[in-house]
Amino acid sequence: MPADEKPIASVWTRPRRGREQLSREQIVAEAVQLLDTDGLESLSMRKLGTRLDAGATSLYRHVANKDELIELVVDEVYGELEIPATDTADAADWRTLAARSAYSLRAMILRHPWVASVLGQVGLIHLGPNVTKMSERMAAVYKAAGFPSDETGHAMKTVISYVIGMATSEAAYLSLIARSGKSEREFIESLRSGGGEDPQVEDPGKARDETFDYGLRRVLDGLQVRLDEIPGDAAE
């Protein structure tokens, strides 16, 4: 790096401040609660400061701006993911490991619907510890499966893209139901014009799970076809 060129500032490389009444962990925890309750459009340093009974100036001692705050909260919820280590099962069972990772990512997005809309702006310069760790674990699943090194990331991103797309749509649907004040079953029944039994009405949560699972299995089927095409020494 040239002597006159300054490194790009990042919340992950900035030294933490010493003991203060308000900590970065408190700020992040409260921000996640605010986002879960009111959505991304409600997030502001001023509103967050009010919830913490602190001025915005106190927050800026720990977080330079809203973009840095988003990096922190995304990394926080990424820590909820349960990504199995590749040494916990035979590599031949990669589909099970990939599916478990996908289910965990979907569950996290449904708990925090706002996260899907900000994933694209996180980690462009520096990755937080949870995002780094979980991304490496997910990539290891596809590497152990036998994908060549130049395809590992593509395989992982293909599955992640499916999960984010499905979970984002699902979260928007559930938010609409929540605003209606009805249960999911009541909401579906109110849209039906005919009678008769409908599994989607009887157990709508199960129906959503089955829809997600069907698509995930077909995506993994496609990746398995690609794996079967790869020569045995190509993944070395």
Rank of each mutant, 00 (worst) to 15 (best):
M1C: 11
D4S: 02
D4W: 02
E5M: 04
K6F: 10
I8C: 06
V11E: 10
R19L: 15
R19Q: 07
E25F: 15
I27K: 00
I27M: 13
V32I: 13
G39E: 02
L40R: 05
E41G: 06
R46N: 03
R51S: 13
T57A: 15
Y60N: 03
Y60K: 00
N65E: 08
E68G: 15
I70A: 07
E71L: 08
V74R: 02
Y78S: 04
G79K: 06
P84H: 14
A85H: 12
T86C: 06
D90V: 12
A91W: 02
R95D: 12
T96I: 13
R100T: 01
S104Y: 13
R106L: 05
R106G: 09
P113R: 05
V118M: 03
I125L: 08
I125A: 04
G128S: 01
N130I: 05
T132H: 08
K133R: 08
R137N: 11
R137L: 12
M138I: 01
Y142I: 00
F147R: 04
P148T: 10
S149N: 04
T152F: 00
T158Q: 08
S161C: 02
G165W: 11
A167R: 13
T168P: 06
A171D: 04
A172I: 01
L176A: 14
A178Y: 12
S180Q: 07
G181S: 09
S183N: 05
S183L: 05
R185L: 08
F187W: 09
I188L: 15
R192F: 08
R192Q: 12
S193T: 13
G194N: 12
G196Y: 03
E197I: 04
P199A: 01
V201D: 14
G205K: 03
D209Y: 13
G215M: 02
L216T: 11
V219M: 08
V219E: 04
D221V: 05
V225C: 01
V225R: 04
R226G: 03
L227G: 01
D228T: 01
P231N: 04
G232D: 10
A235S: 11
E236T: 07
